[in-house]
Design a protein around this nucleic acid. Structure first.
Length: 418
DNA sequence: TGACGTCAAGATCCG
DNA sequence: CGGATCTTGACGTCA
């Protein structure tokens, strides 16, 4: 079972993607951005493989406006080599890639212009994966679309338009249940008529279930049956509700305990799990370590290095507990570790704890910092102590110092991110 | 016509 | 000027 995340890497500035607006989309600009994004994607693949993350969704925005007719940019020709190298790297590393046009790509619209644009968009996504030389198990995920007052006709129109797609597109296209209009039963009905694999989305299903009640694992098995051998292992989307937010909105991080219950329920079903969560790779690493049989305390110590100053800021009590938890080098207390991390993150940081974390982080700079920098830091710290400025101001100043005095340990820390 | 979702770019404001 | 914060863009559907 592979576990992965979508599109972006959190906590690593050098892996940030770039974009532009339509009115600035000159050929030169598009070259610049695409070349940057392809280079970044190459490094993201490395990052994923190094961290055992073997499932990843490539951002549709990697090549800006790639599917727009009006924008002439021969990316297929310009970057054929780069794409092929990316694909080879993924295949060699066992990394399964996919793409996912957003909710605005609608194949079943009654408006032919909308359908034409949807087809062009599917062509772009398919061509991208084709040029990478990826196998047919690298999929393009699509929602069914709108209803337009008549769901029966809307479903029929989806099937008709699907059948008009090129074989190249059809061999990669898969469909997903959404959180508003098409529940899993609808999607399975379409899938069985047109022979399309179905991605089961766990949270969408919770928010938008069909009338027929079945266990989640039964739906997952049924969706799994729509996948043929050459489609690869059936995929599902997994996310958790952001408590207190509107139904269906993704949580900031995956609660490992909740994930483990789900994971155990599907342990006998062959699936790959795509996480949809705001902290992206952070949750992917968490879930992979949580489900690994061969994990070591070294990996946990590496995670601790990333989280420690954030935890210190939220709760010194949890900080100490985690420290003692990690003392036994013959253990691998993954679940207690993340439980404490998640618990601490729920606590509102008290001023004294925030200051304590500032001083720990300042410790990395105080030898190298210039006199004016020391004065500035102490001044900001005092202002924060007096309640004149918020904690973010001081944190951002420390982050600026990190730019001037790079430090490998702090650079990989999540302290400036969460 | 606004809400929906998503992210970086772009615009604006501040000292 | 640099930096922080707010707004826009790009897409289609639905209420």
């Amino acid at each position: 079972m592979k576990i992965g995340y979508a599109c972006l890497v959190e906590g690593k500035k050098e892996l940030a993607m770039r974009s532009c607006t339509l009115k600035n989309a000159t050929e030169e600009k598009l070259r610049e951005i695409t070349e940057h994004n392809l280079t970044v994607l190459d490094r993201i693949l490395d990052y994923n493989i190094e961290n055992g993350i073997l499932l990843f969704r490539i951002s549709s925005d990697l090549i800006p406006f790639a599917s727009k007719k009006e924008v002439e940019f021969p990316w297929q020709r310009l970057y054929a080599n780069e794409l092929q190298n990316l694909g080879e790297k993924a295949l060699k590393g066992g990394l399964r890639l996919s793409m996912h046009p957003g909710q605005y790509t609608v194949l079943n619209s009654p408006n032919p212009d909308v359908v034409e644009r949807a087809v062009l968009d599917l062509e772009y996504h398919t061509e991208f994966l084709d040029l990478c030389g990826l196998k047919e198990d690298s999929k393009v995920i699509l929602h069914i679309g709108g209803i337009y007052g008549n769901k029966v006709e809307a479903k029929q129109r989806f099937v008709e338009n699907y059948n008009l797609l090129s074989p190249n597109i059809r061999k990669r296209l898969i469909i997903e249940n959404d959180d508003k209009l098409y529940h899993v039963e609808d999607v399975l009905e379409i899938a069985n008529i047109a022979q399309i694999p179905v991605v089961f989305d766990v949270l969408h299903h919770k928010v938008n279930p069909p009338a027929e009640e079945k266990k989640v694992t039964d739906w997952i098995r049924l969706c799994g049956e729509t996948w043929k051998d050459f489609d690869g292992v059936p995929k599902i989307h997994y996310s958790q509700q952001w408590i207190g937010n509107k139904a269906g909105s993704h949580s900031k991080t995956i609660c490992l305990e909740e994930f483990m219950k789900f994971y155990q329920s599907v342990s006998t079903i062959p699936i790959d799990i795509m996480l949809e969560v705001k902290d992206k790779n952070l949750s992917a690493v968490k879930c992979i370590l949580g489900t690994s049989r061969t994990g070591t305390i070294r990996q946990l110590e590496k995670e601790w290095a990333n989280y420690k100053y954030t935890i210190l800021e939220h709760s010194p009590k949890h900080y100490q507990e985690i420290r003692s938890l990690l003392k036994d080098k013959n253990s691998n207390p993954v679940h207690d570790f993340y439980r404490l991390v998640e618990e601490a993150m729920e606590l509102e940081p008290a001023r004294g704890h925030v200051i304590n974390a500032f001083q720990h982080v300042w410790g990395y700079f105080k030898e190298d910092a210039s006199e004016p920098e020391k004065v500035k830091f102490l001044k900001e710290l005092t202002k924060y102590e007096l309640g004149e400025i918020g904690p973010d101001r001081v944190k951002r100043y420390l982050e600026k110092l990190l730019d001037h005095y790079p430090n490998a340990y702090l650079l990989q820390s999540y302290y400036f991110l969460i």
